[in-house]
Amino acid sequence: MSHVPTAHTDFVIEREYAVSPQTVFAAWADPTAKKRWSDCHEEYTTHYSMDFRLHGHESHHVDYPDGRRQRIEKVFFDIAQGQRIVFAYDISVDGRKLSVSLVTIEFLPTSHGTRMRYVEQLAYLDGHEDREVRLRGTEEGLDRLGLELSAGAAAH
Rank of each mutant, 00 (worst) to 15 (best):
S2K: 13
S2C: 02
H3N: 09
P5E: 02
A7Y: 02
H8G: 08
T9H: 07
T9P: 14
F11C: 08
F11D: 02
F11G: 02
F11R: 05
I13P: 04
E14F: 09
E16R: 14
A18G: 08
V19C: 08
P21K: 05
Q22N: 14
F25P: 02
A27H: 06
W28C: 01
D30L: 00
D30N: 05
D30R: 06
P31G: 00
P31D: 01
A33L: 15
K34L: 03
K35P: 03
K35V: 00
W37A: 03
S38T: 13
S38V: 06
E42N: 15
E42H: 12
E43S: 15
E43L: 13
T45E: 15
T46G: 11
H47F: 03
H47T: 06
S49I: 12
S49E: 15
M50L: 12
M50W: 07
R53W: 07
L54T: 15
H55M: 12
E58L: 07
S59Q: 08
H61C: 04
V62C: 08
Y64E: 00
P65R: 03
P65Q: 10
G67D: 04
R69N: 05
Q70F: 01
Q70T: 09
R71Q: 03
E73K: 14
E73V: 10
E73A: 11
E73I: 12
K74H: 04
V75C: 13
F76P: 04
D78N: 13
D78A: 09
I79C: 05
A80H: 07
Q81W: 12
G82M: 11
G82C: 04
G82I: 10
Q83G: 07
Q83F: 01
I85K: 04
I85R: 04
F87N: 07
F87L: 02
F87A: 02
A88F: 06
I91S: 05
S92Y: 11
D94Y: 06
R96M: 01
R96L: 08
K97L: 03
L98A: 01
S99K: 14
S99D: 03
V100G: 03
S101V: 11
V103Y: 06
T104F: 09
T104W: 04
T104R: 13
I105V: 14
P109F: 09
P109Q: 11
T110P: 10
T110Q: 01
T110E: 06
G113L: 02
M116G: 01
Y118Q: 08
E120P: 14
Q121W: 01
L122R: 05
A123H: 12
D126N: 06
D126Y: 07
D126G: 06
H128T: 00
H128E: 00
E129I: 06
E129Y: 10
D130E: 12
R131K: 10
E132M: 13
V133R: 09
R134D: 01
R134G: 03
L135M: 05
L135A: 04
R136N: 06
T138H: 03
T138W: 07
R144L: 03
L145D: 00
L145M: 11
G146N: 12
G146W: 00
L147Y: 14
E148Q: 11
L149K: 11
L149W: 05
L149E: 05
A151T: 02
G152R: 15
A153F: 07
A154H: 13
A155H: 14
H156C: 10
